[in-house]
Simulated assay, not measured.
Amino acid sequence: MEVVILDEPRQLAHVAADAVAAQLAGTPDATLGLATGSSPLAVYDELAARCSRGELSFAAARGFTLDEYVGLPADHPERYRTVIDRDFVSRVDFAPGAVAGPDGLARDIPAACAAYERSISEAGGVDLQILGIGSDGHIAFNEPGSSFASRTRIKTLTRQTRVDNARFFGDDVDAVPTHCLTQGLGTIMEARHLVLLATGQKKAEAVHQLVEGAVSALWPGTILQHHPHVTVLLDPAAASRLQLAGYYRETYAGKPRWQGI
């Protein structure tokens, strides 16, 4: 796990975008894992800007989103498929139909989840997955207590997650759906490169557990300690609980350029 602490969110977005650009340069038809939420927004802004300047292209790439609320109407502005289209997909040059997500309106939810797993596998798996982390350590919507072997499935959201997401629903926690479909931790761990972004003091304890804590289902993100290629991008506030923050800064400052990200 590589931990990168930079002073400005724009710097973090630039590093994450560099990782995506390097992936596309080597594999133009790469499969990307796309997260929603506030953490990746600056990354999507940076990627959209580079695409508009002709510096990179998503024309041959594919994308899979991490999760989706259950039961939100197709035209709801906070449906995650709508959100990812608005925040990113519509701003770059993905081919029509190249980005897929779990079907939160499926009549047969277990069958829809199994089909989503198959579609990821048939695409060759995810090359680079963008991630955020919740204040309680959840990754995607894998809440505390989730199985490390879990696959795409329905989950019940914790009260804390619904409170955290109420800002997208007019600060009305009761308007936040109770259930979601989410890629499982086992699914996410099969991506070849994980790029996780976290900013702000509210994420500090989750980041501390993610990087330096014991691997535990109480903090689902800690499973990433067992992945061979994880990049954790942090601002000083999110990194404020890290005991080895000085070391992480030193190692990144002295990193050989040939290693990339």
Results as ranks from 00 to 15, higher is better:
68 E>V: 07
35 A>P: 04
53 R>T: 02
22 A>D: 15
48 A>T: 09
20 V>N: 06
61 A>E: 02
57 S>Q: 13
18 D>Y: 06
82 T>D: 12
89 V>R: 10
39 S>I: 04
99 V>W: 04
87 D>S: 13
48 A>N: 12
88 F>P: 09
32 L>Q: 06
47 L>H: 12
42 A>F: 00
23 Q>T: 14
90 S>R: 14
73 P>T: 00
102 P>I: 02
39 S>L: 07
55 E>T: 07
93 D>Y: 08
34 L>C: 06
84 I>H: 00
31 T>P: 00
73 P>I: 01
45 D>A: 13
32 L>C: 08
66 L>E: 01
46 E>P: 02
55 E>W: 05
75 D>N: 15
38 S>C: 05
84 I>E: 09
32 L>Y: 03
24 L>I: 08
57 S>H: 09
53 R>K: 14
79 R>E: 11
95 A>T: 01
35 A>L: 09
29 D>T: 08
21 A>V: 03
75 D>C: 11
48 A>Y: 07
96 P>F: 01
53 R>S: 11
67 D>Y: 06
62 R>L: 02
19 A>I: 15
91 R>I: 00
82 T>I: 09
35 A>C: 10
41 L>P: 00
25 A>L: 12
23 Q>F: 04
82 T>K: 08
90 S>A: 15
46 E>Q: 14
27 T>M: 08
21 A>Y: 03
26 G>V: 08
54 G>W: 08
48 A>M: 10
103 D>K: 02
51 C>V: 12
65 T>E: 00
47 L>S: 14
94 F>P: 01
53 R>G: 14
45 D>Q: 14
76 H>T: 04
58 F>Q: 06
24 L>S: 10
69 Y>S: 01
18 D>F: 09
63 G>W: 03
66 L>Y: 05
103 D>Y: 00
50 R>H: 02
34 L>E: 10
55 E>R: 14
92 V>W: 09
94 F>R: 13
42 A>I: 06
82 T>C: 14
77 P>K: 01
34 L>D: 07
34 L>P: 01
92 V>D: 10
92 V>F: 12
102 P>H: 05
53 R>L: 14
85 D>S: 11
70 V>C: 11
31 T>G: 09
35 A>W: 02
63 G>S: 07
76 H>W: 06
66 L>I: 08
78 E>G: 05
36 T>W: 05
18 D>E: 15
68 E>F: 02
41 L>C: 05
40 P>T: 10
101 G>W: 06
62 R>K: 15
19 A>D: 11
22 A>S: 15
97 G>K: 03
100 A>M: 14
82 T>R: 12
20 V>Q: 07
